[in-house]
Design a protein around this nucleic acid. Sequence first.
DNA 1: GTGAAAGCGCTAACAC
DNA 2: GTGTTAGCGCTTTCAC
Lengths: 339, 339
Amino acid sequence: MPETPTRPRLTDVAAAAGVSKSAASKVLNDAPGTSVSEETRARIHEAARRLGYRPHGPARSLATGRTGAIALVLPPLSNPTHATIARGATRRALELGFMTLTAEDAGDEASRAGLEMVIDSGRIDGVIVGSASTDSDLPFLLTRKQLPYVLVNRSSPHGRANVVMDVAQSAREAVDFLVGLGHRRLGHIGGPTEYTPSVERIQAFRSRCRELRLPEPTITLQPFDEGGGARGLTDLRSALEPPTALFTSSFAQAVGVLGTAAQAGLRVPQDLSVLANDDYPMADYLVPTLSTVATPLAELGAAAVDALLAVFNGEETGDTVIPTAPQIIARGSTSAPGD
Amino acid sequence: MPETPTRPRLTDVAAAAGVSKSAASKVLNDAPGTSVSEETRARIHEAARRLGYRPHGPARSLATGRTGAIALVLPPLSNPTHATIARGATRRALELGFMTLTAEDAGDEASRAGLEMVIDSGRIDGVIVGSASTDSDLPFLLTRKQLPYVLVNRSSPHGRANVVMDVAQSAREAVDFLVGLGHRRLGHIGGPTEYTPSVERIQAFRSRCRELRLPEPTITLQPFDEGGGARGLTDLRSALEPPTALFTSSFAQAVGVLGTAAQAGLRVPQDLSVLANDDYPMADYLVPTLSTVATPLAELGAAAVDALLAVFNGEETGDTVIPTAPQIIARGSTSAPGD
DNA sequence: GTGAAAGCGCTAACAC
DNA sequence: GTGTTAGCGCTTTCAC
């Protein structure tokens, strides 16, 4: 049987089944309240299957005003945090019949252009924003364009729906874990404060230390990358009484800490325990192996999709906090102080 | 001034400029051979600007049969190799006025479903495939669907256009670099042979060793991840005469090697020099810092876009090999044998 | 139960 | 130089 040269249209299916286009359309979408005999229904499905019919997206979009696609606006996916969120979101979207379009937001001119292209294209129903700093104009832009959106791993008072993890809980567990090992002088390498989780993490870390009547923790603010971890370590060590254990706000920062510690002749964990936020397979292969707080990033992405769909339906869901508890994974970079 | 409640259409622009839809359309697309007075032209542009007009993608697609979007089918972007290719491709596509849609191909059922959704959606003009193993049916599928495609970082005799780097050159430079340090017994942790670059790398590595009259190198085949590196190291060390220096086919493998070496009490670089394929910022922070062969991955992605567009235009370009030379970046994980 | 027809926003062939 | 018109493939209202 020779290949069909052009993609089959609804008309072709209808013709093959001996019905009208509208009948075919209703049956294939099983539109509510459609009255078509079981037998015709079967004929239509069979014809569609045989011809390999797939509805043509643009045509359907034009007719319905909906596209079945959502955009993910995230910081560069070279950062595994965001890649994981993206994957979780894409998986969930797929389950619900939505395509995802990723627009990387590196904060530069080119990203911005790409982003506007996607937003203005008329090819998406809504946006999941994971890149917005607190002073980003993205929420306003989307509001002005009348595009539904949710924020993920960020929150904004302007956001119609923010989807977040219990960052404070992670920070508290981190403190408790390190204290459980016997540490009392703790340090934290926080992320930039224009990102809401950084602020929460810092506050929770500090207040948990107070609750436990520990000495005031040393805290430094740094970018999320390896270099930030490196500078953070230098910072913390120059404190009057340097911490014996520290918690980083990103995996990459922890890598930077391990590298810098090794170069400085600081032994981990004997001289310094290191606990990273977020867990990746690489943790098992770093030197020393890296203890982490595993966070439900994929679920976060999935929940963002659910929240966006709720917005589509006009539901006022408010904010979502992922219920999954963070999990400490103890490896070689943490121990009792002095060993 | 109150916001326009609904997105402006071409009709609105035409009305505002006092011309017909077709005039507006032609001017805004500056269609070839359009004769419209400079003055009307200006009026139309001005009206479009004022209203913030953006063509509606689906409508345009329906009318033209083209979408202005291309799909990127790549292995999970948690692998920085593919994330970098994706970024290069997206950047270039944007420059050329194309949107990109990323479909992760993790080789599982869910990815496959997502992929078919994208392919069948009618929302893309072509596909860049970077995930195909040699026995993948993806090329056939795309051919059957009549969707233009190119392979990137892979090659296939069936592919209409393969876009690759000079992997052999990287492998030769790796050998030369290690030999330059004084090593003679070399090892290589190759990637799975169902991926064409793995095969080329292995062959080039081996033949370069022969050219230099070195002892036959020890080669092991492993997955591209950290675990593959770990097992690869174990493998190589169990050789009759273990290599004093090795080249991995991925960055992650090298991380696995460093971790496993540390645990085995093997000193890098004194007991073993390690050179990784591909370079990432993290290399500066591993313990020890990791020597790498930097490869032009972003350019590879960009070139894939160019090649795909050539296919759109019916040009028979054949294969593309990125001209940028690989670059050795010597760090702490390589040294003369025995130090 | 089923089908005819209008129209989503745009482009392009053609008429004026 | 500029406007009219016929679709692109689909959904959906409404009449039969």
